[in-house]
Design a binder for these strands. Structure first.
Lengths: 314, 314
DNA sequence: TTTTTATCTGTTACCGGTATCAAAAAAAGA
DNA sequence: TCTTTTTTTGATACCGGTAACAGATAAAAA
């Protein structure tokens, strides 16, 4: 491994000058800078991030804190994680996972699955953190634009001439759910239609049961806007058990677009979250925040994409 | 943060003695050791792994290399990852993810999704690595005992008095698949029955099609042993479309036991891999190997568990 | 008792960077 | 031209550990 000193010797300057070329280039005369850069090039120098971390009293590790139960975690965490990992490694940071609330170590946290009740715990954290998922307490976060997602879904159902548009939501009093419902309600009202909302826990079997129990309420020509692909899968099964025709008489639109939509038959029309990108942005945000010593970063909403597939009319 | 020096001062010994108490306790007299340990306790001392890493020319990072396509990755990677993360963090190691073959950095690699064709690439790696997944080239690996898994499954199907036992495998010439088939074949032969094997790519829709296309070949009282839950899900759907009764006339047993088995209806009887534990062991193995400067670690097979659920007879 | 050997502890230098301050050089002002 | 101010570069100490060797102490052998 070539070190700073090697480069310094080759460029016949001091270590500090080389260090400056890397971290504060504007403090070095252009001529010297050129020479040093050439030396770095020739020696194929790559800074040792561990040494730098030690000098800065850093660990070069960001903790990913998952507050939900692992067993119920969606496969989509995988994609999120990949995005985070990629974003972090650009700056030579690595991940550690924490599943409980017993954090410690690491230079900052990315926290997912936080609920309203976690606010006091968040307040007592002593390291910078950012959240994955909307919140209304002013914590920095990144999330899919949930409202827009369901607007797209609802509008699409209308365009496909389904007469009745029903929303099957997740029974949780959390911002992401309110936003999804708002997107649905909003779009319906624009067309002077009356929202029809059901809510259940996020399990396919419960969705299946819900639809079957209420089957007589759903005339053909109905589209179900579901707050998750899990729910959508259950709805599809229920319709099939009742011998309803998908997509001719019944449409189903899911939300997430990770894995489940592909395993379903028919494949789901769904609102796809770009979780990889979300992860990358989360990584960039927490690194910024660490660098800026905890400065507020604000909120970022990422546009989702409506994937048109087999569970709605062509 | 309290440092080695703090502890040394408090115990009135040198830094080295404290360092020895931590890393080579047998080199220190019991009396001194006690004193130092007490000092560490009182000051709530935790070693700074970054400093240690620097002194050892290490990065304290293990790379997880996933050679499969991310989009097709199974949700079970999540569990594996959690296990790895936990195993690593015990020794203050963190993960970085690499998706391609462009590794570099990190003290060692955990490699998943490796195929026979990756052998030459593996041979030119310059850091220690361990594989997740069987291989027959002598590389260190950890995997579920695939053969045992399908033995359990097949035996269970026999116990439940299904007369015909069919295996639906994954169409890949890889050891894990051969082992699963071997477990099935083995058990059937023990009962003087003739194996009946189909193979397809690992997609639920292909499995569904396969079963439907061959429906007349499957008399009632058949149990399908599937090499993955994905396939099992497709088989279930096919049987349902043909109005076959599960589990009375047709049994289905999957493999993996992560997520999909729960989302299916009926819920799948499946061979559950303990991926969390696998991950932990992978982490421990690579850390050992790093410590031992690349010494051979051997092969480890973990017993899977048969989860008895709704897709087979009670 | 003296010498040899083994065991334990401390001193020193270093891992590869960075902040801080001092010195040198360049630019500006008198 | 000679100060004064500003900019650029370098020397030093330090981040928190560890290896390697040296010195001190205790045990064994002569």
């Amino acid at each position: 491994m070539t070190t700073l000193s090697d480069v310094a010797k080759k460029a016949s300057v001091s270590k500090m000058t080389v260090s400056r070329v890397i971290n504060h280039p504007q403090q070095v005369t252009p001529e010297l800078r050129k020479i040093v850069e050439k030396a770095m090039e020739q020696l194929n120098y790559h800074p040792n991030s561990i040494a730098s971390a030690l000098a800065h009293n850093r660990t070069n590790v960001v903790k990913l804190v998952i507050l939900e139960d692992i067993d119920t975690t969606e496969p989509y965490y995988m994609n999120l994680l990949f995005g985070i990992a990629k974003g972090l490694s650009k700056k030579h940071y690595a991940i550690q996972l924490a599943t409980g609330r017993d954090v410690g170590g690491g230079d900052g946290y990315i926290i997912t699955g936080g609920r309203a009740t976690d606010a006091e715990w968040l307040d007592q954290l002593d390291k910078p953190f950012v959240l994955f998922g909307e919140n209304r307490y002013g914590y920095d976060f990144i999330d899919t634009d949930n409202k827009l997602g369901e607007q797209l879904a609802t509008q699409y159902a209308l365009n496909k001439n389904y007469q009745s548009i029903v929303f099957i939501g997740i029974d949780e009093k959390e911002p992401f759910e309110y936003s999804r419902e708002a997107g649905y309600i909003n779009t319906l009202q624009k067309h002077n239609m009356i929202p029809k909302i059901f809510r259940i826990q996020n399990h396919s079997s419960l969705a299946e049961k819900l639809i079957i129990d209420n089957w007589r309420k759903f005339a053909p020509n109905t589209c179900f806007i579901c707050a998750s692909d899990r729910i959508a899968v259950g709805v599809v099964r229920a319709i099939q058990r009742k011998n309803g025709n998908i997509p001719r008489d019944f449409g189903v639109i899911g939300f997430d677009g990770v894995f489940l939509d592909q395993v379903s038959n028919p494949k789901l029309t769904t609102v796809k979250q770009n979780l990889f990108k979300l992860g990358e942005l989360l990584a960039e945000m927490i690194l910024q925040k660490i660098k800026q010593d905890g400065a507020q970063q604000g909120e970022v909403l990422i546009e989702p994409e409506l994937i048109k597939s087999e569970s709605t009319r062509k």
